[in-house]
Design a protein around this nucleic acid. Structure first.
Ligand code: MN
Ligand code: MN
Ligand code: ZN
Ligand code: ZN
Lengths: 146, 146
DNA sequence: TTATTATTGAGATACATTCTCAATGGAGCG
DNA sequence: CGCTCCATTGAGAATGTATCTCAATAATAA
């Protein structure tokens, strides 16, 4: 069992909940990659590997994973949202290709700092934020030109 | 007729489309305020003022307004999106209060600049972006404490 | 006028997500 | 162990936003 799964188990038990096989399988699926997975993909992968977990349980467990702080839910625009685990994966924002759908990450610490200042100026207490840049990735830029 | 409505009429006609009363009434509703309106609000307002325009026409006309460049569609997270007109309203990003729903604007030119650099570094051609900061507005911060 | 084309509205459809509720099955107790 | 009790689950219904379909209507062109 991966250390992240261990941590999730601890979180679940500390909350007085049960660490069921369904919850475990959803967690392991999410922790198995650093890709940006949406709920439906998690469900499909689980089905293909024989784990049985319903759509409702997948959504419910993803919420728990987010609550545990081990997973972040990101909004990719147009109603799309995805999950990625945060272990060994510092905060970043996303470049979203509107042609091929690729999601690339970027870090810009100064942007984070400037956001904090903007909040201070407005007397706003930030809980989280979402920054997406939409456009053409390097690959699609070429193929559109060609 | 407001100058923005005039411009929209011009846009519509240049495209070879008809400037119908429905399209006019949707445009005037959007241009009547600088608030962040969602499609359903536009529809409701139109109904209350006696203008008849169906949901489908509201959505279709909002798309045209965005295409004209006179209106921007913004993504407020959780599937919410809103429209605001851009005339005399330079680009800005949003502080979204997760308690009362208030949407406050802020400008941070340096953030915009840093985004451009991030795109350059990644060979990414940006078309647009969305930056929302979620949290408690100044007012809700107080009432939560109290 | 008549033919052609654009626009509209009502409702159907799509889609992601949440909800409902009966069935399941651990956990704790005597 | 057997028996409650209650958390959990799954199937499908419901939700909310947005888009699509298509027949009726209105504008334009011939
Ligand atoms: Mn990421
Ligand atoms: Mn705004
Ligand atoms: Zn691409
Ligand atoms: Zn507030």
């Amino acid at each position: 069992m991966k250390p992240e799964t261990q941590q999730f188990m601890k979180f679940i038990e500390t909350k007085g909940l049960l660490f069921t096989t369904e919850r475990k399988s959803v967690a392991e699926e999410v922790f198995s990659t650093h890709d940006h997975l949406d709920a439906e993909e998690v469900l499909k992968k689980l089905k293909s590997t024989g784990s049985k977990a319903s759509r409702a349980t997948v959504y419910r467990t993803l919420d728990l994973l987010v609550e545990s702080g081990l997973v972040e839910k990101i909004d990719l625009g147009e109603g799309r949202s995805a999950y990625e685990h945060t272990a060994g994966h510092p905060h970043h924002d996303h470049l979203v290709c509107t042609v091929c759908g690729e999601v690339r990450e970027f870090e810009e610490p100064l942007i984070e700092q400037l956001q904090e200042w903007a909040c201070e100026k407005a007397g706003f207490r930030a809980i989280g934020h979402s920054l997406n840049i939409y456009g053409w990735c390097a690959k699609c830029k070429l193929s559109v030109k060609a």
